[in-house]
Design a protein around this nucleic acid. Structure first.
Lengths: 194, 194
DNA sequence: AAAAGGGCTTGACATTTATCAAGAAGATCT
DNA sequence: AGATCTTCTTGATAAATGTCAAGCCCTTTT
């Protein structure tokens, strides 16, 4: 299972990974399994690990005063999960992250991550690449949510991340889009007839 | 005016800037002035420069089929302006960036930026710090826009970036919040009476 | 000084979306 | 198998927000 991680890193870096470095990486990450509905992170916790998803599906969400879930992010195989802010600043998180499907992770602690980044250039490069893509994607999503109607956002999601629609229930997709489950159901019905 | 930039960088980096490096930085950035309403970047252009704002106020926005502006980002003194995606990938941008107030910039081209980052560790560190903060802020804004009502988002902006409200007209603030100018006007009236 | 334009507010009305409630189909648990 | 839970859909209604139009005030331009 470490192979997936090693391949993932090298594909996103310029500098190749040496055999010694590969060992460092293996040693730094510990495997962890989560059952359905198990928490990776709960509101109030400090996010101690950065987790690479080997298998499964998770979602990151906040809960408002009325008890409604608001989904901020989905994650599936080959995505990283963590609350960035909490992990970087070591402050309590306002989010929950839990497993929607049976999930397998490779986890690294923050101290181990910091030294690994210094020891392995490819890890540093991958991190930067991820940050870059992350902020570009976040900006697009912001633009979408302030400029487009609910229907346009749904159609865009259908185009860019169709696999989300197959792996998460509709009420989660609705929450991710910032609309109610009923509205999404009606939008889909309408979209069909076109 | 280069002092502002040098101070800005050293405050955001761990490694100090040597005298030789300061010269490299000075040489890499060229000053540029923009009058009100002048474009820094227009839809379809490739974003060639990363611009540090020494003075002034700008906004980055897209325009939809109906001709409506949707403001994605504001910038004032000590902010960086560029379309990240276009600058990194050298692809045509979907955004416009223009000066709302008289603006002074320090600009660096992409090749100069890449070599400066390698030559000056502090620049590299600052970049990473910015990316990190950028993605955290973007995530918060996404969460706000899918979870909160228009009024809550306005009150939050009032708390976190009150200076925006003083420097940009209300219809731009409304667009930034993803609501119409009329709705913002009504929200403010209501908020007063509380 | 007059004219033109931009920004803000207000009212009337239309549209979109949320909320509440109910029911059907399927999955899961015991 | 039966009970329970979840998901999805649909209808009725309410609430939030957008759109259009008009007017006022202030600034800029001529």
């Amino acid at each position: 299972m470490y192979d997936i991680l090693l391949t993932y890193i090298s594909q996103r870096a310029v500098t190749p990974i040496t055999a010694e470095q590969a060992v460092l990486i293996r040693d730094a990450f510990k495997p962890k399994k989560l059952r359905k509905k198990q928490y990776l992170l709960q509101e109030g916790d400090v996010c101690k690990y950065l987790s690479f998803m080997v298998k499964g599906a998770m979602h990151q969400y906040s809960i408002d005063e009325k008890g409604n879930e608001h989904i901020v992010r989905f994650g599936i195989e080959q995505w990283w999960m963590a609350d960035r802010e909490s992990f970087e600043m070591q402050t309590p998180t306002r989010y929950n992250i839990d497993a929607w499907e049976e999930t397998e992770l490779l986890q690294i602690s923050r101290p181990a991550y910091l030294s690994l980044r210094d020891a392995v250039p490819a890890v540093m490069e991958m991190t930067q690449e991820l940050d870059k893509r992350g902020s570009i994607a976040a900006q697009k999503r912001i633009q979408a949510v302030i400029s487009y109607t609910a229907e346009e956002r749904y159609l865009d999601l259908l185009k860019t991340h169709p696999y989300f629609l197959q792996r998460f229930p509709q009420h989660m997709i609705a929450s991710y889009l910032g609309i109610s489950a009923e509205t999404l159901s009606r939008i889909r019905k309408q979209a069909l007839s076109k």
